[in-house]
Design a protein around this nucleic acid. Sequence first.
DNA 1: CTGTTAGCGCTTTCAT
DNA 2: ATGAAAGCGCTAACAG
Lengths: 336, 336
Amino acid sequence: MADIAQRVGVSKMTVSRALARTTENDRAPSEQLRQRILAACAEMGYVIDQTARTFASKRSGVVAAVIPSLNNSNFSETAQGITSALAARGLQLLLAYDEYREEDEERLLRSLLMHRPEGVILTGGHHSAGTRAMLQAAGIPVVETWELPAQPIEHVVGFSNAQAGAALLRHLHAQGYRRIGFIGGSSERDHRGSQRREGVVQAMQALGLPAQRVLAFGEPPLHIGHGGQAVLQLLQQWPDTDAVICVSDLLAFGALTECQRRGWAVPGRLAIAGFGDFEIARHCHPRLTTVALDCQGIGRSAGELLLQAIDAAREGNRLPAQTITAPFHVVQRESS
Amino acid sequence: MADIAQRVGVSKMTVSRALARTTENDRAPSEQLRQRILAACAEMGYVIDQTARTFASKRSGVVAAVIPSLNNSNFSETAQGITSALAARGLQLLLAYDEYREEDEERLLRSLLMHRPEGVILTGGHHSAGTRAMLQAAGIPVVETWELPAQPIEHVVGFSNAQAGAALLRHLHAQGYRRIGFIGGSSERDHRGSQRREGVVQAMQALGLPAQRVLAFGEPPLHIGHGGQAVLQLLQQWPDTDAVICVSDLLAFGALTECQRRGWAVPGRLAIAGFGDFEIARHCHPRLTTVALDCQGIGRSAGELLLQAIDAAREGNRLPAQTITAPFHVVQRESS
DNA sequence: CTGTTAGCGCTTTCAT
DNA sequence: ATGAAAGCGCTAACAG
């Protein structure tokens, strides 16, 4: 920066101001001078050192987020939503993923906090005491997403996975299906999946349906392949099943193709419904009945909420804890 | 850190050494003391400030990568491969994506370089003069992936997309198909797609096949839906086409389901082949003939290569430019 | 609109 | 094995 300053014939401080966003009590140099300075930077290939800037200003310009997996289009869409919200204000997203290993979340969060993010976005509402303590100590705003936690850390942008599951079950019931099964993951690692299952089971019971046809199959992250194996097991165990709800569209698609390979008509022999409205659900044949979510919208809202909280924090205030409920709706398609 | 030091009754420097990895000329305190220091950190919720550490040591512990899109499983697998290679050495991945807008790459790279990464991984081999200049000025090791650039910036982990396209064309030819079409993106934005197309066209010509059935359809990122529209247009224009190569499995899947909706047998009426061996290609019905790549392996190799280069740089040396060729192979499945 | 001074929290270097 | 001093590149605060 000193080199640039010397080259242009001004002080370091003027260069600093030309490269920074203008604040109220620290006004920018003239536009003409600024252009000369930018030109000098470009010529010399100078890129300002964000590390030093962060260090001096105590503002990292970074937001940290933890998602379960990159390889799930739902979460990568949420990440894109976050990115777009932050980009509008020049903040960077530092993204980490734990492949559904929640025991890793703490370690991951620690290494994220070392980078002094100005805010944190988490997926889900189940977090260890250690995680909560670290966030508390960091004293930065937090948004939890994708669920509606009973005891939120602070802000929330989510929806009730249980209600969404129940809505889908009631939809199939209204279509006339009565011997409905559910396929999900075998562990408690995927809390959102478990909540959907509970919502489905409760809705079954409320409608007086038998609620045994519930299969826990495979460890998250669940892939397409799991769906095929699971549907075979389901039909072997309860051959008269007439419809199945899958914990995600990926599983539903796997179930669908397995049925096609066996020559079982979907929805004639078995109706299939998924969850998430993945791109594949809108395009496979037959198209999948599913629950549509605005994944990118969840990310965008979370990002915008965090921006508000960060703005407040920069001015020494604290944004009161907010909970934003994201919409979902059942989409009726050809598979049921 | 001073607080911790005071609490334990040592100097800041001893705390610093307890928290740092031991270097040769700067040895760690006794294990017992170290444990006392770590305990004090945990008690006080202290997390070391990576910003200050980076600033003082001139080592960020960060590697930056640019991929075209998060929403493409090929690239997110590569990102996972990079992450796993870096994690082994405690380095963080700072990931950015440009949604195939190469004009954004420069802007993206600038904001990445501000974080003073110790190395950079790029996707593809087509980069602007500005990008090259910035990387040159940054003086850090660079790995390009997913292509074999004619003039690499430095290191490369990739494969020839043209050869891969040609191999797939020859495979279909060997199966007996003669009126083969190609569906790809309409712009030059996706260089890898263009290279595949060129490989396919050259192989057609080499085999004496007519090479007109080449459709450029839609702007990247191409989705499943594009495949369906494109295959309709292809068959409308050249009704006697007996096989089609799609620039990615996503397009191929879209083409497949469109055929199914129209009642066209695949491969009876039209054989379909994709590219990338996405999960969907292994599970749809019929399964897709495609070109399999080790996406995660590309990421892991790129990460490991970069680690070597970073190690060399830390010791003041420079790793000679290396090119690693990643494998691909045609996978014959039911769709052709 | 521009400049000067001090210092952010840590590691490097050198000393003991 | 541990400590003291210096300083990394930038911005805040204040001065003009």
